[in-house]
Nucleic acid binder design. Structure first.
Lengths: 332, 332
DNA sequence: CTGAAAGCGCTAACAT
DNA sequence: ATGTTAGCGCTTTCAG
């Protein structure tokens, strides 16, 4: 049978309260009895039942994580950041994939609540009304990692996407380009629409260049769609001479598409990306890219969550991490 | 306050046992009372507490997953396979990273036990005695995913690494190569040493080619180490004309290394990889590779675990998945 | 088909 | 410093 705190108490001739105290490191225990209890614990190989503890204390020491898809390096980096900090604070994480489906996201929130997680870190392309509704019922803190929620009702950690996008496009403008394309995953997603696209437009505007909708292409965030986007772009009567890519996979697809049709990067066409994952160095030419610090966003999000869970004072519910542009070889 | 099964019972004028029955889909409830209870549940927005349920039923509907590092695409694929099947069977997963450290692996097992997971899927480079010791204490089933445990005491799912390695090297031998290098992550890890390396040696042996230890290089499973390995190999008086790479990142590093020094792949040097992740198509030339079906290994492992958890009859504790070679352009 | 009652293993006052 | 006593919210016999 499984051995319980009660067995230990009996064998050690103390009450279960005392056993509980030594297990939880409570200082109100005479060293001698502590030793005695510890010895019995060792001998019986007693292991506390976290579920019982969770029921009694209403704290489970586990947090929920909702992301679109763990098999995407992008999110995997983020999760690693979350997990590292969680471990540091003795939390475990329940990992769930939403595949960006709203109904799934709502349902995942619900099952995480039922599992009595102490908090949730969530990343989503788009925080809908239904999600918000479910989130508002939460008894536990929720922090949004790398996701925009326009009402700003929840704590979040992000970078300045808009400024970053402006910078990226300016980098291209500096080199004299007039025909700059913007290729990005689901233009409809909040970040792409509200920040990257608007940054792109603002930069062009400031340079006195008219927006050409032919140069704005919305695809999936994948290598293959980067390839596809290149095909589309290269067919234009007046094709682009530089491209601002929404993420690394797209950028690499674009580059390979260009190279396959005989062009040289960056000589014939320049590409700047927005992510800087491990992939960015695994192509030739290596990608010049805005660095989106996914690991850090995850880590900081989790850290912020611990503060809420501990009811510490929080200075800022909304943290904005710095970004920078990593210069490599896809831009001259 | 949080509303409990007791509140629902009171409001519906039934006992909590009845509420429990309708919540759990027990058929022994008159349709009329079921409706009544359901109505109250809806009205009160009652949500069962999974922790309490776990304590009472001794089933948590959550499984533990131990992998080396989620930020590695390799493992991320695997986890996605696990998670999809887990979701299908209504389980959640607690994800943990071991970083391949034995002590951490042992400790993770222990904390997962304490959290009362219903089962564990684990992937490790090397199953040590200490780990085995901890695993043997487990009250719940453990299945090993893509990991070798020589005593075969635990259920596992793998592919035939040895045969796959032989095939891969033969593929190179076919093209007339005599100087074939083997570059792999931690040669000391069980799979690399016991299977890939031995497959490499066997294939060369069968072809009457003597093993040259200069051609066997053990590195980390990273792009950078692939680059490094190339440097080392290219300095040899008698350098290789073909390489068998332990995984995709290494293969890409090797290829870029060769290309950077002016060689052409596959004209001047051929490379075959062992993984076939998304990366394999994201290089030029695209990688010819043994396909290691990570997603499937994860999915099948989880499926196997559900069988154990349900105490279903198991035909084979050890399942071996098929592999194949995906022909692309890094081999002629 | 429904209810009563006894736990599941632990924490957290409250006493002593 | 240590023990007693209620629960935490639910499942699960056992009766009826």
């Amino acid at each position: 049978m499984t051995i319980t705190i009660y067995d230990v108490a009996r064998e050690a001739n103390v009450s279960m309260a005392t056993v509980s105290r030594v297990v939880n490191g409570n200082q109100n225990v005479k060293p001698a009895t502590r030793q005695k209890v510890l010895a019995v614990i060792e001998r019986l190989d007693y292991r506390p039942n976290a579920v019982a503890r969770g029921l009694a204390s209403k704290k489970t020491k586990t947090v929920g994580v909702i992301i679109p898809d763990i098999s995407n390096v992008f999110y995997a980096e983020l999760v690693r950041g979350i997990e590292d900090i969680a471990t540091m604070y003795r939390y475990n994480i329940i990992l769930t994939n939403s595949d960006q489906q709203e109904d799934k996201e709502v349902q995942l929130l619900s099952t995480l609540f039922s599992k009595q997680v102490d908090g949730i870190v969530m990343m989503s392309d788009q925080v809908t009304k239904d999600m918000l509704h479910e989130m508002e019922r939460s008894q536990v803190p929720i922090v949004l990692a790398g996701t925009i929620e326009t009402t700003n009702a929840f704590p979040s950690v992000n970078i300045e996407y808009h400024e970053a996008a402006v910078d990226a496009v300016n980098r291209l403008l500096q080199n004299g380009h007039k025909r700059i394309a913007f290729v990005s995953g689901s233009i409809s997603s909040t970040i792409n629409r509200l920040y990257k696209l608007s940054g792109y437009e603002k930069a062009l505007d400031a340079a006195g260049i008219e927006i050409d909708s032919d140069l704005i292409v919305g695809v999936e965030n994948t290598y293959d769609d980067g390839l596809l986007a290149w095909e589309e772009l290269s067919k234009l009567k007046n094709p682009p001479t530089a491209i601002f890519a929404g993420n690394d996979e797209i950028a690499i697809g674009l580059i390979h598409g260009a190279q396959d049709s005989g062009l040289k990067v960056p000589e014939d066409i320049e590409v700047i990306s927005f992510e800087n994952s491990k992939l960015s160095r695994m192509v030739r030419p290596q990608l010049t890219s805005v660095v989106l610090p996914l690991y850090d966003i995850g880590a900081v999000s989790m850290r912020l969550l611990t503060k809420f869970m501990n009811k510490e004072k929080i200075d800022e519910h909304t943290v904005v991490l710095p970004y920078r542009i990593e210069e490599r070889d896809s831009v001259k």
